[in-house]
């Protein structure tokens, strides 16, 4: 029950992956057999079987770094849209180590502002924190989206893909684990196109070469 083309295998829900119980993501086991849960790409290793879905919504995890947009302020927190059905909450007390006045905070985090933040708690509400060193508000740039399960592909092995994009296009690229990507620089539209291409073709081998070509073509124009 598998379709092979090149090196990747596309599976549909209910496809039999193994006749023993296996561990991994995007799979389920029933009666000592392992089946696929999603419509996606199969990645098999010695001990694990993973299915990477083509389409997926973000599920918040602790210590994830995400990019979100401030929606509104309801005392004592800001409501943050994380591109997920679940909202994020940024409490006034989690903005800084020092106490911050409410009127000052509402000026900095006005509705529509994009922020790079860290998830500190998911037990009751998803609580965000701006206390981390990397956390900041994002200005003068654009946003692009990718399916959260494909975020590792944008970064590449040891950050190779993102480094290449940043060096060639002279853009700063900041990737949130929720699939939102912040881009600063001159060739903003080119980078948005590149990210869209990665989203559509992440499972086909030879992606780096194709992206390389695309950047060269885009820069010539």
């Amino acid at each position: 029950m598998e379709e092979k083309k090149g090196e990747y295998v596309i599976v549909t829900p209910g496809t039999l992956l193994a006749t023993t119980k296996k561990s991994g993501d995007g799979i389920y086991t029933s009666e000592e057999k392992t089946y696929s849960k999603y419509f996606g790409i199969l990645r098999k290793s010695e001990y694990k079987v993973n299915v990477i879905p083509f389409q997926h919504t973000y599920k918040p995890n602790r210590e994830d770094k995400i990019i979100g947009m401030v929606k509104e302020f309801v005392y004592p927190f800001f409501i943050i849209d994380m591109l997920s059905p679940i909202k994020g909450y940024l409490y006034l007390s989690n903005i800084s180590d020092y106490p911050i006045r409410q009127d000052k905070a509402t000026k900095i985090y006005s509705p529509g502002t994009w922020i790079y933040s860290e998830i500190m708690d998911i037990s009751d509400k998803v609580k965000l924190s701006m206390k981390g060193k990397e956390s900041k508000t994002l200005k003068n740039g654009g946003i692009a989206y990718i399916t959260p399960s494909k975020v590792p592909r944008v970064i590449g092995k040891g950050g190779s893909m993102i480094k290449m994009i940043m060096d060639k296009t002279n853009c700063k690229v900041l990737v949130g684990q929720n699939g939102a990507i912040w881009i600063e620089g001159e060739n903003l539209n080119l980078v948005i196109k590149i990210i869209k291409k990665i989203d559509e073709e992440s499972h086909i081998p030879g992606l780096t070469d194709r992206i390389n070509e695309m950047i060269d073509k885009g820069l010539k124009k």
């Binding site: 829900p13 209910g14 389920y28 849960k37 999603y38 419509f39 389409q55």
Partner: peptide, 11 residues
């Protein structure tokens, strides 16, 4: 539902 990326038992 499958193309929307829902976790499913089967089609």
């Amino acid at each position: 539902l499958t193309t929307a990326g829902m976790p499913m038992n089967d089609l």
